[in-house]
Nucleic acid binder design. Structure first.
Length: 106
DNA sequence: TTAGTGACAGGCA
DNA sequence: CTGCCTGCCACTA
């Protein structure tokens, strides 16, 4: 468990209900802006056991980066339960739902 | 050690 | 909107 991983975990837990963030932003906030893919891997490995809101992390296009049948449906459902609008293709309007640290918009 | 891969990002056509 | 390409980094065969 590297310090980078720990800060990533903390940051993700800060994402408020009803908002989303992106792999790139998380990586940037954690100190390594080129680590977007590592964020994905971290979530993939320890999301369940770390009790993380993994579903609040999408890619920079505001789209769910999971293949249908591989968690896509679950993530979409979890987000919709939080009133986040997700269309059938897994797309989300980042202009509305992207979380910016500091601006306690919720 | 090398090569392929992926829950990514950005630039460009 | 869709691809294609490059940079990135941990993991695996």
């Amino acid at each position: 468990m590297t310090p980078f991983t720990r800060s990533v975990i903390k940051l993700i837990r800060l994402i408020p209900h009803g908002k989303v963030s992106t792999y790139g932003y998380i990586a940037n906030m954690a100190g390594n802006r080129r680590a977007a893919r590592q964020i994905a891997r971290i979530l993939h490995t320890c999301s369940r056991k770390q009790d993380l809101p993994w579903h609040r992390v999408v890619n920079r296009e505001g789209r769910i980066s999971l293949k249908p049948g591989m968690g896509f449906n679950q993530q979409k459902t979890l987000l919709q339960n939080e009133k986040v609008q997700v269309d059938e293709t897994g797309r989300i309007d980042l202009e509305v739902f992207l979380w910016f640290p500091g601006t306690m918009n919720d």
